[in-house]
Nucleic acid binder design. Structure first.
Lengths: 142, 142
DNA sequence: CTTGCCCCTGACGTCAACGTCAGGTTTTAG
DNA sequence: CTAAAACCTGACGTTGACGTCAGGGGCAAG
């Protein structure tokens, strides 16, 4: 399959695919005229790459771990690297969960009039919204 | 408190604190000679800023939502923004969890003595991952 | 033949959250 | 009083994962 097709299929840009190759993450056969040809399995590999990028791994780390993750084969060394990254991701998940809960608390609280966090009486929602827009004292709202 | 103390206390660099001020996230009083003075509450605010940055929010978004998150007061508009960000974070957590599980599967599998070697068939993968997941509960968000 | 689409290789541009350096002033310790 | 430490503004540098543009080639359809 050609690079444009792979891009469409995997949802990334053509530029990104060439970048992955440059980083040693994705190899391609070349046709006589020098055009890249990918096997069907490349789509899955690209998905993995995206997955690992999204988890904050660097190109270098992905290059090291990708064969291992794709083939499900690990050496003792790669296992240690994998575990380290998994722990990092776990920590990230924990932090994000705390942040999510913090936002949730603020959102949910506005639905509890008894808590005292509603600073405007709730008998007229529309008026409340207008007042909120005009009176909201965000110090450096631009 | 002075900028160096706040930096030490909140674990960020002096440069970062000045950057936050530049972005309208953190205000400071000025002494006669122009040096920044922060109230004790600034440390908590910096923690919040870090928290939101780590969740992938931009400076502009943080500037909009920070007063609301810190004071726990929300307007209908800010509530919508907050909910949108919370949903984004939820999606991020879900994706990270899938990635973590993928790494975990590779790690756990090679540690199972029954396989006797570094790789095992696809058929065994899901079964063993289930077994391993049941045996040692991986740290789970939520 | 030429039109249009896809492909190629450089190579420079971008954006965000700071790092770092220069050159000067203020505060603190002894 | 003096020297070190901390602070100030301003401005340029860094990093990663691409975006974008320039300049050129190949190839099937009309």
């Amino acid at each position: 399959m050609r690079i444009g097709e792979l891009a469409a299929q995997s949802g990334v840009s053509v530029r990104a695919l060439r970048y992955y190759e440059e980083q040693g993450l994705l190899e391609a056969e070349r046709s006589g005229s020098g055009q890249r040809r990918y096997p069907a399995s490349a789509a899955e590999r690209v998905q993995l790459i995206q997955m690992l990028y999204a988890a904050g791994l660097s190109s270098r780390t992905i290059a090291e771990l990708l064969p291992c993750v794709e083939s499900r084969v690990s050496t003792p060394e790669s296992r240690a690297r994998l575990a380290a990254e998994r722990d990092r991701i776990d920590a990230q998940i924990a932090a994000l969960t705390r942040t999510r809960d913090r936002l949730d608390a603020v959102i949910v609280m506005s639905g509890l009039p008894a808590s005292g966090c509603m600073w405007i009486s709730d008998h007229d929602i529309t008026e409340q919204a207008e007042m909120a827009g005009g009176l909201n004292g965000s110090p450096d709202a631009r």
